[in-house]
Amino acid sequence: MSLTVTTWSLEQTSPSDLVPAAAPGGDVRIVRAEVPSPEFSRFLYASVGGDIRWTDRLSLTYAEWQKLLGRPGVETWVAYDRGTPAGYVELAARGERGDAAEGVVEIVYFGLLPASRGRRIGGHLLSYATARAWDLAERWPGLAPTERVWLHTCSKDGEHAMANYQRRGFRLFDTTVEQEPDVASPGPWPGAERD
């Protein structure tokens, strides 16, 4: 059985393109996970993407996760709501084909855990992470200054994802439609689906 998936690619080409969202009320903090941790990154990936069919990284070995996270210019930023992970963003200095394109930063993964959605955390996290994509080279000596930040979202993502990206100043530059296998995601762990 297959699933028709539309993928939209969006970009910013100047830091002035970013339209920040207001910070949510309460104790929401965004912190960089400076020590690459396959365990923590896999937890975030599975917890955020479990109910929206993120499956591309679930079969990776520990060593493969470590290699991905340990590359220069890769950062994980985590939003915490009163000390509990609420969502995350993974940034990577690379082009659309995974190459180390000079001055290009991809927002590889972005999302919120299901319990944190609809609470105004997503716009704030995306704003903060996009600003960190623009100043990525300041933290990574040897990287070219960022000239473009891009991402993709698809019809499997949350219903408000595209609108959030566009409100933050991202512009559409490509659309593709493909057939993908309709694979059920196990969520953060087998049997953890929400009712």
Results as ranks from 00 to 15, higher is better:
L91S: 06
A131C: 07
E180T: 12
V89P: 05
F170D: 01
E90R: 14
E159T: 01
S59R: 14
D51P: 03
W77F: 14
A161V: 03
L143G: 03
G111E: 03
G169R: 09
T175A: 08
W77L: 12
F110L: 12
R168K: 11
F173K: 06
G123W: 06
L151I: 01
Y109W: 10
R148W: 00
E96I: 12
S116V: 08
Q166W: 07
L172T: 08
A133Q: 05
R148I: 03
E90M: 14
L91F: 09
I52L: 12
I121P: 01
L136D: 02
E178H: 15
W150L: 10
W77K: 04
V108S: 05
R148K: 10
R167N: 02
E138W: 10
G87H: 10
G118F: 02
A144R: 03
A163V: 12
V78P: 03
D56C: 13
G118R: 07
L143M: 08
A92D: 01
H152W: 14
R119T: 06
C154Q: 12
P85N: 13
G122F: 07
R167H: 05
R171L: 08
R71P: 08
M162G: 06
G70A: 10
G87F: 11
A161Q: 05
Q66D: 13
F173S: 08
M162V: 15
E96G: 14
T55M: 12
H160F: 07
R132I: 04
D81Q: 13
S116D: 02
I121T: 09
I107D: 00
A63R: 14
G123L: 00
G123M: 00
G87L: 06
G98F: 09
S116R: 08
L91H: 12
L113M: 13
L69P: 07
E90L: 15
G70N: 11
E147D: 10
Q66M: 13
D51F: 13
L125Q: 04
T84V: 15
F173W: 12
E138R: 15
R71T: 11
R119F: 01
L125T: 05
L58H: 10
G118D: 00
E138F: 11
D81V: 08
A137G: 03
R53S: 08
P141W: 02
T61L: 13
D56G: 11
R167Q: 01
G103Y: 02
A144S: 09
C154A: 09
V78L: 11
G123K: 04
F173C: 09
L69T: 11
R132E: 03
V177A: 09
A63G: 15
H124S: 07
G142K: 01
E159M: 06
T175Y: 06
P114T: 10
A79K: 07
G111F: 10
